[in-house]
Nucleic acid binder design. Structure first.
Lengths: 181, 181
DNA sequence: CTGATAACCTACCGCCCAGGTAGGTATTCC
DNA sequence: GGAATACCTACCTGGGCGGTAGGTTATCAG
């Protein structure tokens, strides 16, 4: 596997927060029990999410965590990056603040790294996908025409999937959904 | 990082083999010294590549490894998969032989995993990129219009990059290059 | 004001495995 | 024969993932 459970759990936490009606804070304990996840561990992740400005918190009784922004405006790229650090398919490659891709094997500019092209492409594909997928997308389920979960077509959450069509299309189809929160 | 050095080294080995004039076998020791990689470790990787049918080998003096097929017909997906095992962005998700994506958190079909959509998309993006990028692509360098290595524009290998244009386009542009090897 | 609830913080820990080493055997060329 | 090289199995080590523990603050209900 390539992402750790940090990313997995973190996204799940964010989805739970997004599901909270209005902006009511959700205690981590609730998410932990619901998802069968270790509470103490989630606390670490929540701390990172808060430092990244993705969630707000309220202490004490009736407290908990809540999304800092609308699910429409929170991309999974932000979540994953907050938890895992900067996204890189492989150790030697990373993105600098200015966006340029650097390869540690290439410090000597005499010989270009022949595999850098590959990892740059892969990184781009991953980042693009994460950036195009918002928290709201996950709440809605697969887009029309997108391969569905294939096995659990019933009992959805807030909004039901419109149609279930082709079997091969996991492209994040941009879905117009402009209703500010 | 998401892929281990197995994938990194493995691709580098394959590139070196592809660069060998004609189909002359290249000893691993040569690749190791050229790339500053540990020979003993490369041997493990070479074993996997051979079992996957990606390379052939010749023992003894003047022996070494050679590509089993043309660089045009070897995708980086095959290489990475041979070395890392089946590609999955996260532990809970994997592809079954029939191509369907399964999520271990979903064994109970009562509740669909809300994050499965995300990991399915990410996996798709990665696999598609790896499948579209062949060994030959890496030999040629960035495609015209594709973000180049940005810092080492001189001294290329066999074929020079045609032009260097926009800064943001790491899409694997299909390049017609139909010359069977 | 008291207690319960929950965020928040720091320190600690075990296990797995990536990444690499070591040493030997089998095969082929000169 | 000897050098070169693939090929195989066993072993080792450090780091980090995933988690635990225990405490301190802040907030709310009654």
């Amino acid at each position: 596997m390539m992402f750790s459970t940090k990313a997995e759990y973190g996204v799940r936490v964010m989805v739970e927060l997004a599901r909270s009606p209005d902006g009511e804070p959700v205690p981590l304990a609730e998410i932990a029990t619901r998802g069968g996840l270790p509470l103490a561990y989630l606390e670490h992740l929540a701390a990172r999410l808060r430092k990244a400005g993705l969630v707000d918190s309220r202490r004490g009784s009736r407290g908990g965590y809540m999304l800092a922004r609308s699910p429409l405006e929170i991309t999974t790229a932000e979540i994953v990056e907050a938890l895992e650090g900067s996204i890189a398919p492989i150790e030697c490659i990373s993105a600098r603040p200015d966006g340029s891709i650097v390869c540690t094997r290439e410090s000597d500019p005499a010989h270009v790294c022949p595999t850098k092209l590959l990892w740059t492409r892969v990184r781009g594909a991953i980042v693009r996908t994460l950036e195009q997928t918002t928290l709201a997308d996950l709440l809605l389920g697969p887009a029309p025409g997108e391969r569905p979960s294939l096995g659990a077509l019933s009992e959805r959450g807030p909004i039901a999937p419109a149609s279930i069509g082709a079997l091969e299309a996991d492209e994040p189809k941009p879905r117009s959904l402009a209703s500010g929160a």
